[in-house]
Design a protein around this nucleic acid. Structure first.
Lengths: 362, 362
DNA sequence: TGATACTTGGAAAGCGCTTTCCATCTGCTG
DNA sequence: CAGCAGATGGAAAGCGCTTTCCAAGTATCA
C-alpha cells in the first residue's frame, strides 16, 4: 500500500536503480538535475523507504537488540537511556526486551530461575530472527550460561553479529564490559568501617547472578580483611520488595527492635543494590527504626532516582548511562575493542557512614 | 551467512514451499512424516527464520514502535513495562525511541520545543520506515500537532498502520487513551482543601504540553470553585531538576524562609507530576523547610518509585502499567476499539493532606 | 469402473529494495 | 578524427521468505 521506489522512479522518469542511488545513500551520485527530479517525485508521493526490504537487500538491519530484566527498574532504564543515546546518534533503532515476564508463552514453569532463563533465551532468539546487527545483554550473567543461549549466540556471532554483555560471560567472542562490582563493594565497606561501623548485615541478591555474587564477595572480603564478620546474610530479590522482606527477616533474626538498638554502634545493612536498599529503608521505617541513628543502610549503583531520596543513600556510584553508551558503542563498532572496564566511586550520604560518629555520640 | 530455508528444504528432501509450511505457521500442514523430517533438518542446521524476509513477504513486521520522552523517567518506564508485557504475550517486538536527545542529527537547534518536536518526528519516521504494525505515542501531545508529523501519521494509518496516543490528538483516526488529568487534578486539590489546606502554589509543566495544561487547569478549577487563588504559578520542566528550580523560585517569590512559615496553614505545592514533586521536596529540604510541617507537597501519577519515598508523597494515582498494556492492546487489535479512558484515584500520604490539621495544631 | 472431490507437494511469481554488470555517451589525447 | 578512459543511466539478478496455482495422487460414490 505505501508508495514504493518503482513509483517514484516512474514519476521521475528514471530507472529504479537511479532512484535508489539518489534516495538511499549509495557510492554513486547521479547528475544534479536527475537527483533533483527524483527528490521532487519522492517528496510529492510521500515516499518512505521500506527498511525491511533494504535490510534484506543490504543484509544489515540497523537494529540493535537490548535485553534488560525490568525496564521499570531505574538501574536498567538508566542503562537503556545511554544505549538509546548512542543508537540515535548512529541512526540505529533499538529493539527492547525484558525478561521479567517469563518466556512469553505464558508457560512460566514454576521456578523463577528457568522462567528468567527462558525469557532471556526467547528475547535473544527473537533478536537473532530479526537479524539485529548487535545484541546487548544488560541482564546480569550467570556463572554457567544456558547452553542453548550460548550455542545460539555463538552461531550469531559467527554469522557476523556482535554481542555485548555486562559482566563476564562464558559466551565465546562476546565483548564484555566488566563492572567493578567486587572492588566497589570492597571499597564501600572499607569506607564504612573507616567511619566507625562494625556491625554489618548483608542483603544479598539472587545467588545465581554474578552481579549479586561479586558484590557480596566484595562485602565479605572487606569485612574479613578487618577481622569482622557479617551478623547476618539474607538473600532477596533484586527489587524493592526483595529488600523489604529480606530486611524484616534480618531484623527478626537479629532481634532488633525499636527500643534498645543504639548500644555500641548501629547495625549497617549492606544491600546488593540500591533498589533493595530503598526497600530496606522502607522496612526499617515500618518498624519504627530511625536511619541512620538506629540502623544504617548502604546500597549499590547510585541509580538516578536517589537524587531525591531522603535520607540520602550511601552507595557505590556506577556510571549507568555511561555503561549504556559504552555497551552501544561496543555493539556498533566493528572489531576495534573487545571489551572495557568500568569502575565507580564510593558515595557516602546520610544513610550510612557520614553520621556514624554522631550516631555513636548520641 | 546464516542458514536459510532453502538449505533446510534440501537437507529434508522437500521443496521450499513445504519447508516453509512446516516451520513458519501456515494454514496448510504437511503430512506428519514430512513435518518431522523438516523439523529435524532445521534443528540440525540451526535454522532461524529471517524475520526481515518474512516481513517483506507477509507485509507485516510484528513490530510495534513506542515513543517515550525519556525512558529513564519512571513515568515512561512504567508505561513501557506495560507495553512490553502485552507485546511479549502476543509475540511482537518493541522498537523503542526517546525524544529527549533531540532529532538524532545532533542538530539541536536551540529551542527545546522544536528539538523535541523533531526528535519525535524522527522517531516516527523511523518507525514508519521499518513498517511497524503500530506506533504508540506515549509522549504528551501538543495542542497543535506538528503538521509534518500529522501528515506522515495520517498516511501511515491509511496504509494500514495503527496509531495510539496518550491524550487527545488532532491526528485523524488515531486511537486515543484519554487520561483523566483534569479530573484527577481537580479531585486531588478538592481532597487537599477538604483537609484544611488553603494556601497553594502550582508548579506547572511545560505550557505547550497538553498533559501539563490539563492538570494545571484542574488545579485552578478546583481552587476557583472554592474561591481560592494560587499564590504562585511557576513553570518548570517535567523533571526533578525542573521541580527543584521551580520550587526555589517559588519560595523566593513568596519570601518563604525556614523561620516564620507555620503562620496559619502551610503552603502546599502542587506539582504537575511526581518527578517534579520529588525535586520540589529536595529543594525544600535544601532550604531547611520541613515537610509537611512547614510546606506540603503533592504530585501526580504515583510512579512506582514512590513506594520507598519518605515522607510519602500525596498524589493522584494513574495505573501506569495498565495504561501501557491498554495502549499495546489497542495498538494490536484490528479495529474493535477506537479509544479508551483511564482514571485514577487520589492518594494522600504524609507529604500533604493527611497531616494538615496536626500541622495547624502544632 | 469411471467420474468427482479432496489432499498434498512443488514450481514459480512476487514482496521492495540494492548492486553488479553493461551499454552508451562525453570528452580528451595524439 | 580515430581511439580510449571515465562517467552515467538502466537491465536484471538476487536478498530469504510466502503463497498462489497446478498437477498428481487418493478417496468416495453411484
Amino acid at each position: 500500500m505505501p508508495v514504493k521506489l518503482t513509483e517514484v522512479a516512474r514519476l521521475a522518469g528514471v530507472s529504479l536503480a537511479t532512484a535508489s542511488r539518489v534516495l538511499n545513500g549509495s557510492s554513486r551520485n547521479p547528475a544534479a538535475d536527475i537527483t533533483e527530479r527524483v527528490r521532487v517525485a519522492a517528496e510529492e508521493l510521500g515516499y518512505v523507504a521500506n527498511a525491511q526490504a533494504q535490510a534484506l537487500a543490504r543484509s544489515t538491519t540497523g537494529l540493535v537488540g537490548l535485553v534488560v530484566h525490568d525496564i521499570a527498574d531505574p538501574y536498567f532504564s538508566a542503562i537503556a537511556h545511554g544505549v538509546q543515546e548512542v543508537a540515535l546518534k548512529s541512526r540505529r533503532q533499538v529493539l527492547l526486551a525484558g525478561t521479567d515476564f517469563g518466556g512469553g508463552d505464558g508457560a512460566t514453569d514454576g521456578s523463577t530461575h528457568s522462567a528468567t532463563h527462558s525469557a532471556e533465551l526467547a528475547a535473544v532468539n527473537a533478536f537473532i530472527s530479526y537479524r539485529t546487527d548487535a545484541i546487548i545483554l544488560a541482564t546480569s550473567r550467570f556463572l554457567e550460561e544456558d547452553p542453548l543461549l550460548s550455542r545460539n549466540l555463538e552461531r550469531y556471532i559467527k554469522n557476523g553479529g556482535r554481542v555485548v554483555t555486562l559482566g563476564a560471560t562464558s559466551i565465546p567472542h562476546a565483548k564484555v564490559i566488566s563492572i567493578g562490582n567486587f572492588e566497589g563493594a570492597r571499597d564501600l565497606v572499607a569506607a564504612l568501617v573507616d567511619r566507625g561501623l562494625v556491625r554489618f548485615a548483608i542483603l544479598s541478591g539472587p545467588h545465581d547472578r554474578n552481579t549479586a555474587r561479586s558484590r557480596v564477595s566484595g562485602f565479605h572480603q572487606a569485612l574479613t580483611e578487618r577481622e569482622l564478620t557479617p551478623l547476618a546474610v539474607v538473600e532477596g530479590e533484586f527489587s524493592s520488595r526483595g529488600g523489604f522482606n529480606a530486611t524484616l527477616e534480618c531484623l527478626d533474626t537479629l532481634e532488633i527492635v525499636a527500643a534498645g538498638t543504639s548500644l555500641d554502634s548501629p547495625l549497617c545493612i549492606l544491600a546488593a543494590n540500591d533498589v533493595m536498599a530503598l526497600g530496606a529503608m522502607t522496612a526499617l521505617r515500618s518498624r519504627g527504626l530511625r536511619i541512620p541513628e538506629d540502623v544504617q543502610v548502604a546500597g549499590f549503583d547510585d541509580i538516578p532516582t536517589l537524587r531525591d531520596h531522603f535520607p540520602g543513600l550511601s552507595t557505590y556510584r556506577l556510571p549507568l548511562e555511561e555503561i549504556g553508551r559504552l555497551a552501544a558503542t561496543l555493539a556498533l563498532e566493528a572489531e576495534t575493542q573487545t571489551g572495557s572496564t568500568v569502575t565507580g566511586t564510593v558515595v557516602l550520604r546520610e544513610s550510612a557512614g557520614t553520621t556514624a560518629s554522631s550516631a555513636n555520640g548520641a
